[in-house]
Every structure is written in structure tokens, then in C-alpha cells.
Amino acid sequence: MEKINFNYFCDNFDFYVKEALNNKIFIYPTDTIYGIGSIVNKSNIERIYDIKKRDKNKPFSIVAPNIDWIKENFITSNDFEEKFNFFLENNHGITVILSKKNNLFLPDIGVNNKVGVRILKNNFQNFVTKLNQAFITTSANISNTDYIEDEKYFEEKFEKNVDYILIHNYKKSVESRIIDFTDNYKILR
């Protein structure tokens, strides 16, 4: 496990994109709380379930590279982008629930063909955009324990299981608003 200053990470995206493509696991700041994640593949999904000690019936969300990627891969309405941007601008962070166009797409993510999808309001989004593929996102804590946003907690709980902890002084500690876009923009949280 290596601790990296978030600004250094942002200045060296090319290197960390290669690391992500080599299945490295990251703890990273989002626009809400710290997340733990990686590129999406079956092996990484299993690793993150094990790291978090998470019930395998609880799906992970993803960070999408951009809005066009979302519209290409998920069922969206004609006014989706407008509504999405409205919710994104007016909330600290959002997760939208969408149905996949093809159930073979991201086969190990989501449940009943539905996936939680995020676009972040911080520089980690630029990293995912550069990756140009889905990135697993889930809270950086052991399942069924309180969320603690503390560098020492991350080191203690995850040091042997994650590759990088991105340290940032941004403190939010508020979960994202969840909006089900499969049900006429129904706010779930």
C-alpha cells in the first residue's frame, strides 16, 4: 500500500491509469465520502467484496467516464442529461439508478439489470474520464461498520489489501443522493 498526495496523483494521471489497468485497488476522495474501487472486472469485484467483508448480494455502483458513455450504455430518456445535470448541480453528489441497455454489459455489476452510476464533482472524475471505462465505487469502510474518514483508519483496515490511498484534505462525509432514473426520477435518499 502506498499513500499518495491527491494533487500528485492528479499531476500523474498517465502513470495511475496504467496502474488502474493493471487491476490496482484505490482508496480515493469523491465529492461525498472516500471510496474504494478499481476498474470493473470479476477479479477486482471479488477482491473488493473481500476487502470490505461485504455481502455479495449488495451491488456496487460505478463512476462513469462521462455523460455520453452513460447514454450509450444505459436506458435514458430524452431529457436525461438535463435532469441529471440539474440534480448534479443542486446536490453535494448523486448516484443515479439506471437500467443497462444490454444485460451482458458489466455483467457482475448491479442487480436486476440496474446499476448505480455516478459522475463525480472532483478531480477523480478526470481520472475516470481518462480511463474511459467504468470504475467501481463504494464507501471506504468495512461493511456494517460506521464510516470513518480518517487516514489512519484506512491504513489500519486496508493496508494489506489496497494498492493506493489518495490523501486529500477535502472533508465532506455525506453520502450521495440516490435518484432512481428507471422510475421517473424518484429520489430514494
Rank of each mutant, 00 (worst) to 15 (best):
P59R: 06
R118G: 15
V115W: 00
F135T: 03
D68K: 08
Y16M: 03
S61Y: 11
I75E: 10
Q125E: 03
R54G: 04
I75N: 08
N57E: 13
V174H: 06
N102L: 06
D14A: 01
Y185V: 12
S143I: 08
K71V: 15
Y8S: 06
N78G: 15
G37P: 06
F158L: 15
V162I: 07
H92Y: 10
N184F: 12
Y28K: 00
I165C: 05
K171Y: 01
F6E: 15
T32V: 02
N66L: 02
H168Y: 11
D183V: 14
D180M: 12
F60Y: 11
E156A: 02
T76G: 04
K83A: 10
Q133H: 11
E82D: 14
N57R: 04
I25L: 03
V63Q: 06
E151H: 01
F127D: 08
D150A: 00
I51N: 12
T95C: 07
R47W: 02
K121I: 01
N78Q: 07
S139Y: 13
I142S: 05
S173I: 02
K101I: 11
I4V: 12
N161T: 00
N103K: 13
Y185E: 06
Y170E: 05
I165A: 02
I148F: 12
F86P: 07
Y164W: 07
V162H: 05
N90K: 09
S61N: 07
T95M: 04
F154T: 04
F181K: 08
R47N: 10
S173R: 00
V115H: 00
T30D: 02
I33V: 09
L166W: 09
F181G: 14
K152D: 10
S38A: 04
D180E: 06
F87V: 03
T95W: 15
F181R: 10
M1E: 11
G37I: 10
L106I: 01
I67M: 10
I45F: 00
D108H: 06
T129F: 14
E2R: 09
E81W: 09
Y185P: 07
T138E: 08
F181C: 10
S176R: 02
V162L: 10
P59L: 14
I70P: 11
N73Y: 14
N91V: 13
K52N: 12
L188K: 11
I179D: 09
I45Y: 03
S99M: 12
V111F: 08
I36R: 00
E72H: 01
N184E: 05
F26L: 02
V117Y: 04
G116R: 15
L98Q: 10
D79H: 09
I142N: 03
N78H: 11
L88T: 07
N184D: 09
K152W: 02
E151F: 04
N141W: 01
D146H: 08
W69Y: 13
N103Q: 11
V174K: 02
L106T: 00
I119A: 00
K52V: 09
E81H: 03
C10L: 04
V111P: 13
L104K: 04
V17C: 15
N91M: 14
F135M: 10
P29S: 06
T137D: 06
I36S: 00
T32C: 08
I109H: 04
D146M: 05
V128N: 05
I167Q: 02
I187K: 11
K121L: 15
F105D: 15
G35P: 05
E81I: 13
E82M: 11
R47F: 05
